[in-house]
């Protein structure tokens, strides 16, 4: 159970990291640098969680909380700077980071109890859990990434293969 919870936390941290990096790529420099660094930190948390490494709590929580704290700080201190941070992606990032933090904290609590600790999940349960949580995180992260500056530049579906020609004088 603790291993599956840790998997969920790791995948949520990965989704949060991707959004933080994508938002940081188009933000003003004083917001971009900490956002990209936080994203890199969240990727490190993801690797540690997947591997089962027990990092000190501040090292896990700091990169997860930093983008949301920075966003709130920017909203209060510099509204024009905060305007470079898109609302929906930052909300999605905060939700995923919070979910990751909760899952990793729950994993720690379960792991502290030897009676409830499991060494490795069953193969099928692990794969199904991984696929399910990957679907949920991709479902949250993908619209958020599309809402970033990088997402708005990406080629839309069907741009090169399909031309929609609407005949306004069809007469039906």
């Amino acid at each position: 159970m603790d291993a599956l919870t840790r998997l969920c936390g790791a995948v949520a941290a990965l989704g949060a990291a991707l959004i933080a990096i994508a938002v940081g790529a188009a933000a003003v420099p004083w917001l971009a640098v900490p956002l990209v660094l936080s994203g890199a930190g969240q990727l490190a948390v993801m690797v540690a969680a997947f591997r089962g490494w027990r990092w000190p709590l501040p090292a896990v929580l700091a990169p997860l909380a930093a983008p949301t704290a920075l966003w709130l700080l920017a909203l209060l201190a510099s509204p024009e700077g905060a305007a470079t941070l898109p609302l929906v992606p930052m909300l999605a990032e905060s939700v995923l980071a919070l979910a990751a933090a909760v899952a990793l904290l729950v994993d720690r609590r379960i792991g502290a109890d030897p009676a409830r600790r499991t060494a490795e999940p069953r193969p099928l349960a692990a794969l199904l859990s991984l696929a399910a949580v990957a679907t949920v995180v991709a479902g949250v992260a993908t619209p958020a990434l599309a809402g970033t500056h990088a997402g708005s530049l990406a080629q839309p579906h069907g741009e090169h293969g399909l031309t929609l020609d609407v005949d306004e004088h069809g007469g039906h």
Binding site: A10, V11, L130, A134, A138, A154, H157
Partner: peptide, 24 residues
Amino acid sequence: ALNTADHILHLASAIVLLGAGLAL
């Protein structure tokens, strides 16, 4: 020639492959 759908497929693949490789 990466487009949005490619990025989604690569992201989903990265999650499952990394998760399996690192955790299982």
